[in-house]
């Protein structure tokens, strides 16, 4: 998707994308926002976008590499680009050279950013679950008079045997879904094994 008024910049960008085997579909401020969300890439002219609130929701919903077409170094324009969280930018007036490099770097930045966001989400989830794991371990310590380290190892081994995440097993213990005494046999065996492995 190219969102940019007709003119020299759009012409240069369209031609170069076609050379790269990319099919550009152009929209301008007079267009209706497209329903089809089957785009792989978006190029958004900063000045046109800021003047066209009708497209704001579409731009915010795009989950793909977005490149800003930036015609001004004015900080207000640069701030707007940063706020949009774009993956890259191309300076206007647009020249054929440099578009491919900007495109590749933007796609890489988008994928990296998405992978980082996933990893951060997973880490946040685990961090949040950490309190549950600690609570479950404390219950094992209190019930079976084992050390904290032994309790954590019991949780780890039990979760592997049941093929569920440590955090999920801990949640089951804390919620009472899995009573702590039910771990009795496991605890005896694990302490023995733990002791042996040490």
């Amino acid at each position: 998707m190219i969102f940019c008024g007709a003119g020299r910049d759009r012409g240069v960008l369209t031609q170069q994308l076609q050379r790269l085997g990319i099919t550009p579909i152009a929209f301008d401020p007079a267009s209706d926002p497209p329903d089809d969300e089957g785009f792989d890439l978006a190029f958004i002219d900063v000045e046109s976008a800021r003047q066209t609130p009708r497209f704001e929701r579409l731009f915010q919903s795009l989950d793909l590499p977005v490149l800003a077409l930036l015609g001004s170094d004015a900080p207000s324009s640069v701030d707007w680009v940063i706020e949009q969280g774009v993956s890259g930018y191309i300076v206007k007036p647009i020249r054929g050279t440099g578009i491919l490099a900007s495109l590749v770097i933007a796609c890489h930045a988008f994928e990296e950013s998405r992978a980082n966001a996933r990893a951060i989400g997973e880490l946040r989830r685990r961090l949040k679950a950490r309190q549950l794991v600690c609570s479950a371990a404390l219950r094992i310590v209190e019930s079976f008079h084992v050390t904290e380290q032994e309790a954590f190892q019991v949780l780890q081994i039990c979760s592997m045997e049941r093929r569920i995440a440590v955090e999920d097993l801990s949640a089951m213990i804390v919620s009472g879904e899995l009573p702590v005494p039910a771990l009795g046999a496991d605890v005896k065996t694990r302490i023995f094994n733990v002791g042996e492995s040490q």
Binding site: R50, S76, S77
Partner: peptide
């Protein structure tokens, strides 16, 4: 007016 002159000066 909705273009860079006003955006930048207002910033």
């Amino acid at each position: 007016s909705n273009y860079v002159w006003a955006w930048e000066n207002n910033r």
